[in-house]
Structure formats: C-alpha cells, structure tokens
Write a protein that binds this DNA or RNA. Sequence first.
DNA 1: CCTACCGGGCTCTGCCATGACG
DNA 2: CGTCATGGCAGAGCCCGGTAGG
Length: 380
Amino acid sequence: MMAQKRMVWVLWSIGRSSAHRHAFIPMSGHSSSSPIIQKPPPLHSENESLLENLSSMGVDLNMARRRQPGVLRKLLTNEQGLAQFLMSKGADQETIASIISRFPRSITRSCEHLEERWKLWRNIFKNDSEVVGILSRSPESFFRSSDNENLQENITFLRSLGITPKDLHRLLTTAPRTFSNSVELNRNMVELLQSICLSLGGKDHEHFAKTIISKNLYILIRSTNRVKANVNFLLSSLTLSQAEALLLLQSHGAQILDLSHESLKRNFKNLQVKLQCLGCSKADFKKMILNYSLMLFISSERLNEKLDCLMDAGIHIHQIIQKPKVLDFSLDILNQRLQDLSRLGYDFQKNGIAVLDSSKKRFHAKIERLGPLEMESAAV
DNA sequence: CCTACCGGGCTCTGCCATGACG
DNA sequence: CGTCATGGCAGAGCCCGGTAGG
C-alpha cells in the first residue's frame, strides 16, 4: 500500500529535491524486543530535511509547528510543487512562505489537486491575481478542505439559488470560507433562512434567502444555531409583527445576525437600559432599532460614549431615535463635527441633526456655506 | 442649489474542538 | 493514538454618494 502511495507521490513531486525522501529509513537495525530503546528515527519526530526545505523557502517553522505540528512530521509532502504552482500564478516567495507558515497542510496537496481547485476558483474570479490575493489573505479558506467535488457542488448550489455572478464573486472574495463548507452546511443555512421567511408568512422564501445572503455575505459561515437564536431574540424582544420582521431581516437587519448571540443580547440590553434612563418608551426603542438596527453592532461602551457626546452637544435623544444613522460615524468624526457646528452656533433643535450624517465632502461643503469665515478651522 | 432617503462599499481571520478514519 | 476535515467561535463599524424631489 505504501508503495502504491509512493508511486503516486513520485508523479506529484517531479522537480523537487529528493533530499528528504531519503530521510525515510524505517527503523532498521533496532532490536524489536526493546521498543523503548529505539529513539533515533522515531515515528513522532519531525522530518529534518523537510524542515530544512521549508526553512530555505522562508517558512516560519515555529508558526507552522504551532499550527499544524503533524505536517512537519510527514515524510511525503509537496512544498516544492506548491511553491512552483503558486509562483506560476504570480505569487512571490514571501507570500508563499507566509501561506505555508499559516497553513502548513497546504504542502500536502498534490499538483493535480491544486490545478483542479484553482480552476474551480477561477470560474468565479476574473484572473489569477485575485485568487492569489485571497490566498495570501486567508490560506485556510483555500486549503482547509481537499474536497474539490464538494467545492464544485457548492458553486452549483449557490448558483442554483439565483445568486448573481456578481454576488457570487463578492461572496468568494469576502467570505471565502463559505466555499469550503460542506454543501450540506450551506444548504442547512439556506433552508433555515427560507423557513424563517415562511414562518413569518413571507411568500417568496427563495428571494428572501437570496436577499439576506447578498446583504450579509458572512451569513453562510455562521452557525445555524447562532442565526436562529438571534432571529428569535429579535422577534420576541422587539415584539415585531411579521411584516416588520420580514422587512428588517431583508434590510440592515440581515447583518446583525452575525453578532455572537451574547454580544447581540448585551448590546441590545445596554441600549434598552440607556434609553430607559433617558426617559424613552419601549416604542421609542423599537422605532430606533427599526430605523437602523446596525447600531447594535457597536459595543455598549462605545455606543454610550457616542450618545453622551451627542447629547452633551444639545441634541435631544428623540432626534437620535429618529435618525440613529448618525451613530454610524466614529466618535472622532462626531466630536469634530459637533465642535465645528457649535463654533458656528448651529442650532440642532431648529435645524435637525441630519447634517451629521453626511460624507466628509458634503459636510465640509455645508460648513463652508454656513460660515465662510471659519473655513480653515472646519477643514480639519 | 440643497436636502433627505437610501443603499452600497470596505471587510474577516486564526484558532480550537470534535468525530471519522486508519 | 495521530492526522485530517470540518464546524464553530470571538472580536465588535465607518464612510461615501446617487438621486428624487423640494
């Protein structure tokens, strides 16, 4: 059996230094009656010539060892083939070394396997360099699974959902792990989403699932338990009507399904308490979430800071509830803008707070219109 | 010309646990 | 037992501009 494997291996490894194959000398010369004594080429030691090989390629051995120690003990590996392959696709030495360091098992893939997998990815990407980019960003996404058939099935499955080529591209770019999931796992998530739609009285469950995926490209790498828990939590704690829920989940709400359940609950409760302290009603709270649920992404401390800084500037909490999108901006930007506006004597009660929710360009244009004399100070 | 509404773009890996398999 | 493949988790926002309509 070993011999057979080896022959296949030889086909893989053309062009590779044969040094470490010779290191494979089965424990000959040791007395079989004293297994404890046999120390020298023990089964569980690292393959020295492999280490040398990797080292000369610039691989960080300590990192590799920490991540997948077993690979360094292997006798048959394809690091040279992998390197040549990636180089032919435009990766440089440094990138290759980094890929191997971060995901050592990559060197166990055969050249044929690599060719095939690459071809499948290229179905979705425009060119090789895009694939190289993803690989260097996330080697694990490409290499963790060796199941090319599953990859093909995934692509077929996702296409069958009616996901556009553009979204498929975004999906693989943004959440490449999706494609290493088993088709079953992806299908489970899609079916969960569809069943959520149906349970809410939605008519087009396929469109619903597709919409959520395109709004939240990470959804397929979340667990169904998390998504289920988050949806249930939102439905019950906000007492949403079916129509409200369908609407929310197909818009900005799709993204907050990503949060770990604990974070969602924590951020949710914090906001609830905060609003309560400010004298707001339950309806206010609900309205705020429906207006812009993404602020649930913001950690409680940060959100409180933002709310406080807005209110210190004389903005009323009900203005924020009407337009929670202003919380989308960083604390720095908010503070800067509040300063600029207060210098100009801007009256939030009279003029509203929409001015805070604009791009830099538009905000500065606005400031200039409000107070031409203050241009320099407003220009950051 | 100005504003409000609205949606989009960017972005997310690297680690651990577990079960299958040999 | 060791290795592999796979599932799952923690962590926790910001910014831009098209465009309809005043």
